[in-house]
Amino acid sequence: MDNSPSIFEKLGITFWLCLMWIVLVVLLALFADLLPLPGADVMDWDHPAAPPGTVGTLQSLIASDANPTEIVYFFGTDTMGRDILTRLIYGARVSLAVGLITPLIGLFFGGILGMLAGFYKGRVETIIMAVMDSILAFPGLVLLLAITFFLGPDLKNIIISLGFLTIPSFARIARANTLTYSQRDFIQASRMVGQNDLSIIIHEIIPNIFTPMLIYALLVVSYMIVAEGSLSFLGLGVPSPTPSWGGMIAEGKEVLEETTHVSLFPALIMFLTVLSFNLIGDSLRNLLDARGGQL
C-alpha cells in the first residue's frame, strides 16, 4: 500500500483546476473593493454595449476631477455602459453568498432534525419526516417565489427561503446516515453503559455523518447558485442596481440580436462556477465511496 497514489493524485487534475477556479472567484469577490475597478454602477454613456477590449474614458463622479481616466473594458460593457468585468466580480458576491450560506442553513437545521429522527426513531422520526415530506411536496421554485413575493426580495430573504427549502433533503441524508451508524456496535455499547445521548451524538454520530453531509452540501451549492440565478433572471432576485449574474444574463438577452457578449460572459462564468462545484462534489464523493469500499 506504500506506493498507492496520494490524495492529490487520486482527485485528479480536474479537481484541482476546479478548486483553483472557485478560490479565484471567491478571492475576487471578497477583495472587489480593493481592485482597480470602476464602480459596479458607473455608466459610460459613450460606450454602451461595447465589445470586449474597448478602451473607454470614465468621467469621475467627483465633479472637480477634470481628468477622466482611461479604462480597458476587458469583457466589454453592458447596455448601460457599465463594465461587465466589474459587475461580474460584484455579482459573484451575491451568487457566492447565496450558494455558500444557504447549504449551511440546511446543513445545520436539516442535520439536527435528521439526527434526532434517526437517533430516537419512533414518534419523533414520524413527525419530523412527515413535516419534511410535506415541504418536499411543494414545487421548490413556486414556494421560493411565494416566499420572496410575500417577504419582499432582498438578499437576506432569498438566503433564508432558499435555506429553508434545503432543510428536508439534508434531514433525509442525516437521518439515513444516523440510522446506519446507530446500528453499529460501538454506539449500542455506549448507550448500554449509560453514556448520555447528547454526548453520543456529539462524539460518535456527528463525526461520522459529517463527511457525507458536507459532500452533499457541495452539490447543493450549485443548485443554489442556479436557483438564485433563476430568480434574478426573472427579475425577482436581489433588486437592482446590485449586480447579479442572473440579472446580467437577462439584460444581455434583450440585445442578443446585436451583440452576444453582454449575456455570454455572465453565462460562461456561471457555467464554470456551477460546473466546478459539481465536479468537486463528484470527485469527493467518488473518493469517499472508494474509501468506504476499502473499509
Binding site: 450549485s222 433563476s230 444574463i249 452576444t260 453565462a267 456551477v274 459539481n278
Partner: peptide, 18 residues
C-alpha cells in the same frame, strides 16, 4: 451530459435562441 447539468435552463434558452 455532466457538463449540461451545469447549464441553467435560462442560459440554455438564450443559447438556443441565439
Amino acid at each position: 451530459a455532466f457538463g449540461m447539468m451545469a447549464v441553467p435552463v435560462f442560459v440554455m434558452g438564450i443559447a438556443l435562441i441565439y
